Amino acid sequence: MVDLDLPRIKPRTQLKGEEREKFVEQVIKAYGHPASIRQICKETGRSYGAIYRVLVDNNVTLRPRGGKNNVRRKS
C-alpha cells in the first residue's frame, strides 16, 4: 500500500477551523491519488462515514464500487 501521508487523528476528536480545512484538503487529495475510502479510513483512524461525508460535502465525484473485476449487468 502507498503511504498517503495523512494525519492519524485520535478517536472522538472533533476537528475545527483551519485544522479541519487542512484535513479535508488532504483527504480529497488522497482520494484523487487514487486511494480508496477504506484506505483513507485506515490511515486516519476516522470512520468510513466520516470520510464519505467529507468527500460528498465537498462535491467530489465518487468512483463506482467494485474495483477492477466489477461487471455491470443489464437488468
Rank of each mutant, 00 (worst) to 15 (best):
S75E: 03
S75V: 05
R63S: 08
T61M: 11
V56N: 05
I51E: 03
G49F: 07
V71S: 01
V56S: 10
Y31E: 06
K10N: 09
P7V: 04
G67D: 00
P11S: 09
G66S: 03
Y48C: 03
V27S: 03
L15C: 06
I51L: 05
I51K: 03
Q26F: 04
S47I: 05
R38Q: 15
R20A: 12
N58L: 10
D57C: 12
A50S: 14
V24Q: 11
V2T: 08
N70I: 00
L6K: 01
R12K: 13
K10C: 01
E25P: 03
V2N: 04
D5E: 07
K68Y: 01
D57I: 04
D5L: 05
E43F: 08
R73D: 01
R8L: 07
Q26R: 13
T61I: 12
E21I: 06
L6P: 00
V2Q: 06
N58V: 10
L55F: 09
D5R: 09
D3A: 02
G66Q: 01
Q26N: 12
V54W: 07
G67A: 00
E21D: 14
K16Y: 13
Q39W: 12
T44E: 08
R73P: 00
N59H: 14
D3G: 02
I37W: 09
D5A: 08
I40R: 07
G17H: 11
R8M: 04
R38A: 14
Q39Y: 11
G32P: 01
Q39I: 10
E21S: 11
L4C: 01
T61A: 14
L62S: 03
Y31S: 05
I51R: 01
N70L: 00
Q14K: 13
K68S: 04
N58F: 10
I40P: 03
L4S: 00
V54R: 01
K74V: 01
R8E: 04
I40M: 09
K10Y: 11
S36A: 12
G66H: 01
G45D: 07
G17D: 10
R65V: 11
S36D: 07
A50H: 12
V56M: 11
V24A: 08
K42V: 13
L55Y: 09
G67W: 01
